[in-house]
Design a protein around this nucleic acid. Structure first.
Length: 247
DNA sequence: ATTCATGTTGTGAT
DNA sequence: TATCACAACATGAA
């Protein structure tokens, strides 16, 4: 479920509750979720992997983590962490993290860092990457301050599409390659969104959970790489490792 | 049946 | 003080 494009789909589905008033609140969240009762939803937004219900002086943030789920106008046999009821229906969230964000939402996030956002700023992303030459590119793609919304599937697919070996340090990549990774991060995320909407995402994976390189037909490598130690699928033949200058 | 994974946060140790 | 390893949460697929 929960990489940026999936949250965009959730946001769109939840948008039937934008500008509506919350009539009833329940759930097993330990927070003071009652504070939302009677309040009007000013906007339903997303930032990276987070869904946001914006109210007048605060916002409520849902993060589905790895296995969180939701239902709109539909029950499922589990107790919701949070349930919001409106005049036109309800939404349930399960197994997720709920948080309140006080004050102005505009200042709460760097909106231009969200790969799905209209205001996504690739130049800023490149500048931030350049500022950390020692970081491995596989870690950089998962850094939500650099690429909010990019998760492990997108990471793997982007690196393959750009033909970049995951263990390259940013400082060893030619500027053109850095730009390509940034461009692919945005482009593939939207491709992911379209395929997910059409329920055909998985069949379009080129390396994630795959065994064979679609380009050279060689065996793909699976390793837990980078600081994050997340699963990384890559073709050791097609994805280039650029030489560092320290040897 | 058991293990693992599309993710993040908090805690306690070092 | 900073960094790090680990636990916790939750659920479906292999």
């Amino acid at each position: 479920m929960p990489e940026g494009p999936s949250i965009v789909i959730l946001r769109d589905e939840a948008s039937i509750f934008a500008l509506k008033t919350i009539r009833s609140v329940s759930g097993n969240s330990k927070l003071d979720i009652e504070r939302m009762r009677g309040r009007r939803v000013v906007a339903i937004r997303s930032y990276g992997k987070q869904l946001l219900f914006q109210f007048t002086n605060f916002s409520m943030r849902i993060h589905l983590l790895m296995f969180g789920s939701y239902r709109i106008n539909e029950e499922k046999p589990a107790s919701p962490r949070l349930r919001l009821e409106f005049d036109n229906g309800f939404i349930n969230f399960y197994g997720c993290s709920v948080k309140f964000i006080e004050g102005n939402l505009e200042e709460a996030f760097e909106w231009a860092a969200d790969v799905m956002a209209d205001c996504w700023n690739p130049i800023k992303a490149r500048r931030k990457l350049r500022a950390q030459p020692g970081t491995q590119i596989c870690d950089a793609l998962l850094d939500q301050n650099l690429f909010a919304g990019v998760g492990n599937i997108i990471k793997n697919e982007v690196l393959f599409r750009a033909l970049v070996h995951p263990e390259n340090r940013i400082g060893d990549l030619p500027a053109r390659k850095v730009a390509e990774v940034v461009r692919e991060a945005r482009q593939y995320s939207f491709q992911f969104l379209e395929w997910k909407r059409a329920y055909v995402l998985k069949k379009h994976w080129l390396v994630y959970k795959k065994k064979t390189c679609p380009r050279c037909a060689g065996r793909l490598t699976l390793a837990h790489l980078g600081n994050s130690q997340r699963r990384t699928f890559f073709c050791p033949r097609c994805q280039v490792k650029f030489p560092g200058n320290s040897g």
